[in-house]
């Protein structure tokens, strides 16, 4: 029994680490990409994948421990259901958000900042490939 829990713990930590990696990648994409569509692309894909991995890690943890750090098994069903629900909501929301945000915009009334003014001293192409990897792996 303890061996199973230990294996589950290792698996959960691995999944959480993968989740962290993808969330960090998404955040880097948000910070470093050159314009709005590419940023959206990084955020929508990498970040949701990250949330999915973190959710999966917590699901494994809940199945092994039953909710808490120290608790025994049992009572994990509700936790798993809600974690999955969080992820599904995030997927739904991101799909709609990305579409709405990426739709060609009329010039905003009185945008006080010019959209042409791009931040980021570094050139785009060097940073582009990194969050590209999660993006391509996301589609199963």
């Amino acid at each position: 029994m303890t061996a199973v829990v230990a294996v589950a713990d290792v698996l959960a930590v691995l999944l959480l680490a993968a989740g962290c990696f993808f969330v960090v990648a998404g955040t880097l994409g948000l910070l470093r990409f050159a314009d709005l569509p590419t940023r959206l692309h990084g955020v929508a894909k990498a970040d949701n994948l990250g949330l999915g991995f973190i959710t999966a890690g917590l699901v494994v943890h809940a199945l092994a421990h039953g909710g808490g750090i120290a608790g025994g098994g049992g009572g994990a069903g509700g936790i798993v259901a809600k974690l999955v629900l969080v992820w599904l909501f995030a997927l739904l929301g991101t799909a709609a958000n990305s579409h709405l945000l990426a739709a060609p915009a009329r010039p905003e009334p009185g945008a006080e900042e010019k959209p042409e003014r791009e931040p980021g001293p570094g050139p785009g192409p060097e940073t582009t490939p990194e969050p590209e990897a999660p993006a391509t792996r996301e589609a199963p």
Binding site: V23, G26, T27, L30, L36, R39, L40, V43, D47, N48, G50, L51, A90, G93, T94, N97, S98, L101, A105, E108, A111, E113, K114, P115, R117, E118, P119
Partner: peptide, 16 residues
């Protein structure tokens, strides 16, 4: 720089 960029950031923060 644009409001859409800010909202994109907020969408990311909602997930994170």
């Amino acid at each position: 720089p644009s409001t859409r960029d800010r909202v994109t950031a907020f969408a990311l923060l909602g997930t994170t």
